[in-house]
Amino acid sequence: MMQVACIGAGTVGRAWAVVFARAGHDVHLYDAMEGEAAGRAMDGARKTLDLFSESGLLDESVETVLARIKPVESIAEAVRGAGYVQESVREDLDVKRAVFAEIALHAPADAILASSTSALPGSDFLSAIEHPERALVVHPVNPPSLIPLVELCGTRWTSPETIARTKEFMLSAGMRPVVLKKEIDGFLLNRLQFTLVAEALHLVGEGYCTPEDIDAVLTDGLALRWASIGPFEVAHLNAPDGIQGFIDRLGPMMRHLGRSARTDYDWTPEQIAEAHRVMTGKIPLSEVASRQQWRDSRILALRRMKQDLPDPLDE
């Protein structure tokens, strides 16, 4: 076990603290708002751990795991002696540069320094620190306490050893790391997600269907396959001669639909307002928190199912 530092105690930061504490690490949690943020973070961590316990996915007591998370009063105190640091502050280049300068100043020289950024290339704010070869982006899916996928993306300065160590550490913490071979805006998940959302806005905006129809196509259609296998394996299994045969037969249609899709669709404020009206009619804003709890329970139920029925190809 090692000491871990989480810098930023918002939704993502406190979720990371739960990940590391569940894995048995002592976590120092720091936020610039100090006491106020720390109180919310510990309350949020407890609720998440309660949910894990109720779902049968916690091997220890909630109190045991929660006791490993310690709010501290400075970045220096958080990172002193840490073997791994996860930054989760707001998406602002100047803020991240200042935060990482302080992290690098006080953290051990061999500590891995990771950023949770979902929009900013690591090269834009990790290059000027001491020993930039130990720094990289470790981009989670919000919240990482519930969703194990994490994207590892180094900069031109990140050493292969840092990538390898981070991947091993993430695996040991119960995460599912993928490694990007080079930097790209939005990383992998957001590029796929936002491309699909943009085409969904096009289909709804041009009157082909309703927002509820799009959600049904995903939850009762694509997601039932994608929860276990990805699009490449879907194609491979949908043809007796594998993905080559699938593309040989359906490739022309795929290219046509790709050309006609509108991932750059210029939606209007009125279209977004209408989508908002539809969604708040289904889920009033006053019920968002309870719906989030239901969503989180379903995510953990799916994780439990995947744990109980593991993929034999992963063994």
Rank of each mutant, 00 (worst) to 15 (best):
K181P: 00
P148D: 09
V12L: 15
L218M: 08
R40M: 10
G44M: 06
V204Y: 05
E233R: 03
E212Y: 04
I214D: 02
L136R: 01
L250Y: 15
D266M: 06
P121N: 07
L66E: 00
L203R: 04
D266V: 12
R191D: 09
A9R: 13
P177W: 01
P269R: 06
L250V: 04
E133L: 03
A135R: 02
R40K: 15
G205K: 11
L222I: 07
R191E: 12
N190G: 05
K282P: 00
E91A: 14
F232A: 11
T162Q: 05
R303G: 14
L302E: 11
G44P: 13
E274K: 07
A114N: 07
F187V: 07
Y84R: 06
P269I: 00
F20R: 01
A119H: 10
A223L: 12
S55I: 08
I272S: 02
A111S: 04
G8E: 13
A223D: 05
P132E: 01
E102G: 05
V65W: 07
L285G: 09
S260V: 11
T11M: 14
T155A: 05
F169L: 10
Q293A: 15
F52P: 02
L313A: 14
K181L: 12
E206S: 13
C153K: 00
H106V: 02
R191V: 13
E63Y: 04
D241A: 11
A104S: 08
H256M: 13
L49H: 05
A198I: 03
W16R: 01
Y30M: 14
Q293D: 15
G56K: 08
T11W: 06
A198Y: 10
R262I: 03
F232R: 10
V179D: 05
C153N: 01
D185S: 15
L171D: 12
R14D: 04
K167E: 12
L302Q: 11
G258Q: 13
S115A: 08
L250C: 09
S55V: 02
F246T: 00
E130M: 13
L224W: 01
M42F: 08
A227M: 12
E73K: 14
R14P: 04
S115M: 02
A41M: 08
S297Q: 15
E73Y: 11
Y265Q: 04
D308A: 15
E36Y: 14
R90C: 14
I272L: 15
L192K: 09
E212G: 04
G186P: 05
G8H: 03
S53K: 14
T166E: 07
A17G: 01
V95Y: 06
K96L: 10
S297W: 08
Y84W: 08
Q271G: 06
E274V: 03
D59L: 09
K70I: 02
A5V: 03
A239M: 01
L196P: 05
R134M: 06
A15I: 10
P71K: 00
V79I: 08
M1E: 06
R165L: 09
H28P: 01
S145K: 02
A114K: 00
H139M: 04
R40W: 07
T158M: 00
S55F: 07
S286P: 04
Q193E: 13
D264W: 11
D248V: 09
Y30L: 07
V234I: 10
Q3M: 08
V99A: 14
P121Y: 05
L180K: 10
S74I: 10
L237N: 02
